[in-house]
Amino acid sequence: QDIQELRLKVIGGWSNVTMTTAVEQPFWQKTMPDLSGGKITADFNSLDTLGLKGDETLRLLRLKIADIVTGPVSFVAGDFKLYDGLDLSGAILDIESMRKAVDAYRPVIDKNMQENFNAHLLMMWPSPPQVLFCKGEIKGVADLKGKKIRTFNQTLADFVEAVGGTPVNLSFAEVVPALQNGTADCGVTGTGPGNSAKWWEVTDHLFPLVLGWSPYFSAINLDTWNSLDEPTKAFLTEAFGKLEDEMWAHVAGVATEGVNCNTGIGECAKGIKANMKLVEVTDADKALLAGMVTETILPRWAGRCGEACVAQWNETVGKALGFTAKAQ
């Protein structure tokens, strides 16, 4: 294999999530050098150790501060609303549908990256499903009425308003004390992260209604990409394809284990066993949620995103999921 020698500067995902520590970082520090026979190495840093918030990743890539960056997709929505299109609360209920949506939306995001950030999209993968951790008895969606629910993006706030709750904006650091003291009654986070951040210490009901997937992207600076010869590009494309598959498999595993660990039932190898009560998501709940998606969440997002953006989304993600977004 005749590939170029490269030393890539990589900014990876949050250092406190397993997607970074168990998959992404080992990939850059071990797998990639091994696969390339030592020709391709990387200087890897997590975005939080660099003191970044996550909404500036693509801007930094455009300035060529690094060759490759990973960041949360919906954090780019500050610059372009279309980046929220993969994280619309409650629209995607299982990981297979999420994969379909991601594959459908890939060209749209890549085009936006090429045009605005001088970047090329390499991979996208989800977080474990974002579900509700609540303090106090919850039987279904209807019980969320009147609850103070910690949200971290606009479409989650739309959901909370739709169920008649109060959205509370808190930084991740303040969620656990807030849940303990009752500043918030419920919080939304991934099943795995919620387990490792010990949310089960301060809540007792796990309501696995899937409210989002907080997807991540990995992108490469276009100048770096264009400077590569064809064999190297082909080699990298294949390696990233494998990494992406590995990431999805990892997340699927973490998602199931996350539920097991939080409830203390079933296999829990990597997490901490807790004893939260698992609330069953009934068909009635799903129907209620679907109604909110079509009546509130999608139209509000469509209003923010604009006509051209909505048309693109309907063509791709909408088609894959069977939704049509229309501004109110």
């Binding site: 970044l52 501060i65 060759d67």
Partner: peptide, 21 residues
Amino acid sequence: SVLPLTRAMGEVAWSSSTSFL
């Protein structure tokens, strides 16, 4: 650094000085 890290100054300054904590 082979990369122009100084150019990140603006984004880093904005991020760090808007932190709610």
